[in-house]
Design a protein around this nucleic acid. Structure first.
Length: 284
DNA sequence: AACTCCCGCAACCGCCAGTCC
DNA sequence: CGGACTGGCGGTTGCGGGAGT
């Protein structure tokens, strides 16, 4: 690509062509070369998912990425830092007069239930409502009234886990201990599919099997790409590769996915959500 | 056309945890 | 047991290219 920084680490003893160390090669494979990586802009649904998961998990990019097949943690991180964060901040500025209440946001429920039928602009509004409680207004230094997005991943508390929509209005305990103003834990709106993925542990089995089946293929691909990268062999015909990739998608062989196919929650996510829920129960 | 500025994004950095010897 | 090595992750950097002047 020629973009980015100069290669990392001491290049003594590394391959003569691209001067990549093993770690660099691995990263490049994960973030760029993998055949199942989805190219192009993020869809509205993907953006919404990122926002929601970020509200829930904070900067756990790898966990967020695990819910977005074909997207890498690096890519999601970039999109968040360069686009979504600004988008949310500007919206927050536009709204300006929004006041955070500790009442359950009934409009949230309503708007979510209708979200499938929303016009784009309403969907935008809906998304804004969904995420705005993750943001804590700073004391405005000037007219720009800067908004800082605060990640409260690990301090966030889910009041309950349920297949139905879940909303939490919980005071932050640290704030309480400090005797300061409470700030509101984000009211989380968890997609029903996500909860069903979480609760139905078996839903990922078939995919897991597929993944195992393709593990050796992936390994071969990795080696092949590495060899190409190192200039040890000729790259395959790109066109052919593309066709293969598309075919793979259509056949659902697990190498790539439908644009917004929901992948089962990763074990880590399940574990995390479980821990958070237990913690919540203890606090209550 | 030439220059400057800004932004997107691939890649590097540093830390941590797990594994191997 | 402990040091070396490796993989994974989140944060950060800085090059390249497009937009603006």
């Amino acid at each position: 690509m020629g973009k980015g920084r100069a290669p990392c680490c001491d290049k003594v003893g590394l391959n003569k062509g691209l001067l990549r160390c093993g770690k660099s090669c691995r990263l490049r494979w994960i973030n760029y070369l993998r055949p199942d990586i989805k190219r192009g802009n993020f869809s509205e649904e993907e953006e919404e998912t990122i926002i929601k998961l970020h509200t829930l998990l904070g900067n756990k990019w790898s966990r967020i990425a695990s819910q977005l097949p074909g997207r890498t943690d690096n890519e999601i991180k970039n999109v968040w830092n360069t686009y979504l964060k600004k988008k949310l901040a500007s919206r927050e500025r536009e709204k300006g007069d929004h006041k955070i209440t500790d009442e359950p946001n009934s409009s949230l429920i309503e708007s979510h239930s209708n979200s499938e039928n929303l016009e784009p602009q309403n969907r935008e509004k809906n998304r804004n409502q969904t995420t705005e409680t993750t943001e804590v207004q700073k004391e405005p230094k000037d007219d720009s009234s800067e908004v800082e997005v605060q990640h409260k991943s690990n301090s966030s508390v889910l009041s309950r886990c349920s297949s139905s929509l879940s909303f939490a209005t919980v005071e932050n305990h640290h704030s309480e201990e400090n005797g300061d103003n409470f700030f509101e834990i984000p009211e989380m709106m968890i997609e029903p599919e996500l909860w069903s993925m979480i609760e139905e542990g078996d839903c990922g089995e078939s995919l897991a099997v597929k993944k195992n089946e393709t593990a050796s293929d992936e390994s071969k691909d990795w080696l092949e790409s590495l060899e190409i990268e190192l200039g040890l062999c000729e790259p395959r015909d790109e066109k052919q590769e593309t066709v293969l990739s598309v075919d793979s998608c259509q056949e659902g062989n697990g190498l790539c996915f439908d644009p917004f196919q929901i992948e089962p929650a990763s074990p880590l996510l399940l574990e995390y959500l479980y821990d958070v829920n237990v913690e919540s129960s203890n606090i209550d």
